[in-house]
Design a protein around this nucleic acid. Structure first.
Lengths: 194, 194
DNA sequence: GACGGCGTTGACTGTCCGTTCAACAGCGCA
DNA sequence: TGCGCTGTTGAACGGACAGTCAACGCCGTC
């Protein structure tokens, strides 16, 4: 396997296990099975490793969002799709979610990527606005704020799983997904119950 | 003023400005106007300073929650009250919220306080359950998950303000508050529109 | 079989910073 | 006046750790 990817994968595991600050460069190297000097052949610093992990994976998420947005489903189905993608990421890649939630999301580190995070919000916002325009979502709610509220709900559930405070068995996750979907769709629906 | 409090207040400002990890003990001491050695007369470590900041302020928040819960208002008003207390904390003590959101909330640091954080969730959960029992909230939503969703919404708005991504003028904050209230009450209401 | 360059190694450096500690100042008390 | 206690100081220590670098192995090329 390509060494660069090897290092990134190792970094995700190590960061997930010990947290970014407590992880030493040597830990990552050891996990990847290389000498720690080599890491500097592929990355300029420890921080750049974290940044790369974030950037490459977040952009995948954005791509998934974009595919959903570009589909011809009604807005409310698109919103469901986004919710599902985000929540299911926990079972798909728990280590990655751990790192994203704990180290990057509201990170004291790295300023630049704030814009990239925001792009996810904006997608949600656009979907909500389309729903409002189509008449399926109530139009009296600020779509931007609503997108933050929706995203916050999802991130908090992920956090609950990350911190081990919410049960995350198969049915638990499915149940959480169903609950958010009902919650959000009810709140946004143009007419009474969703 | 009592030196201990002086140090804590200085620490909040410094942590808010530079983040916990990037803040040196000397920075806190300088901000407090003392020699850095003195800090160890009052606290056993830099980490304990952060922990104390969290503990003492979070317990105040829990007390506010408890007062609301013990009032004889209907559950839906109590929930409104909780939302308002949390959101208004931003204008009341922005530095504190900065530290709480960025350093403590899903912290790689300090494990013990997870239980204290959880107590806030449980209060929200109880209020929701009471509303369900009273018949004003729909009973088919899992109250525990709903409490996480509600809290997540609020924390995300605070985060938006902390990171400077959401406008936080007087009217902006009021508008955000109104939006969350509508969103949450609509989602939870037993019958159609809130 | 010399050459060169890419990939790889790991000892070493330099620095940063949390923490310690010996000394001291002020003050109440006897 | 002397004793001791609490509060206070800042120089010094120690250890950790990110990042450097000189050397080396391997492999293709001429």
């Amino acid at each position: 396997m390509e060494k660069r990817r090897l290092i990134l994968d190792a970094a995700v595991r190590v960061f997930a296990r010990k947290g970014y600050h407590t992880s030493r460069v040597g830990d990552i190297a050891e996990e990847a099975g290389i000498a720690h000097g080599l890491l500097y052949h592929y990355f300029s610093s420890k921080e750049q490793v974290l940044e790369t992990v974030f950037r490459e994976n977040w952009s995948e998420l954005l791509a998934a969002f974009a595919r959903i947005e570009d589909s011809d489903e009604p807005a409310s189905d698109q919103l469901d799709g986004i919710v599902k993608v985000l929540l299911r990421s926990w079972r798909n890649a728990p280590d990655l979610v751990r790192v994203m939630v704990r180290e990057v999301a509201r990170s004291p580190h790295l300023q630049g990527q704030v814009d990239e995070i925001r792009e996810g919000f904006v997608t949600i916002q656009r979907v909500i606005e389309r729903g409002q325009a189509e008449g399926s979502f109530r139009a009296d709610l600020d779509a931007r704020l609503a997108s933050w509220i929706v995203y916050g709900s999802l991130e908090e559930l992920l956090t609950g799983w990350v911190l081990g405070q919410l049960p995350d068995g198969d049915e638990d996750v499915a149940h959480a997904e169903a609950t958010v979907l009902t919650f959000v769709q009810t709140a946004l629906a143009a007419d009474g119950r969703a």
